[in-house]
Amino acid sequence: MARTLIALAAAALLAAPAPAADAKYPLTGENTTITFTGFKPGGKHDGGFKTVTGSAVVPDGDLAKLKIEVEIDCTSLFSDDPKLTSHLKSPDFFGVKDNPKATFKTTKVEKTDKGYTITGDLTLLGKTKAVSFPATVSATADTFTLAADTKIDRTQWGMTYGKGKIDDEVALKLAVTAKK
């Protein structure tokens, strides 16, 4: 009887799944694309950032506990017009000499019918504001993917140049395909 009980216990221990480790996916400019579109009456301009560093961590395989920390090198800003790029880097917009970095850090991730809603603190031009956006997220054994389309009001971070001539809302697109 005792031997049977011991054998059953050993089998139960071996059958129980090992607790999932935190899966960490490094984010770089190669696997993470951050692009934006600014609008004005009769036109738009596209741009983005080439240099990004950070990580996405999925604790226990649970995407609702996803933690993303990203640092964007604002000096890597590019746009569809080199002269516009220079103006975007000026104090009228990103002021990259005085504010070379922007950061994003998740504070909450919630599962929804269509995917997830990611909430986090976006720090831009030295100001931190909470942003929330829907995203499609998935994580396998070695690949993390995220896709999101959202809009932010640039004036909330003090980027007020052209208010009235250039739209306050800027469309942001995020795409991540990161391997461990």
Partner: peptide, 21 residues
Amino acid sequence: LGWDAESPLLPWTPGDDAKPW
């Protein structure tokens, strides 16, 4: 004229996060 519909080009009273200019 569209530079910033809510405030002048240079603020009359610089705020706490004012730039030197």
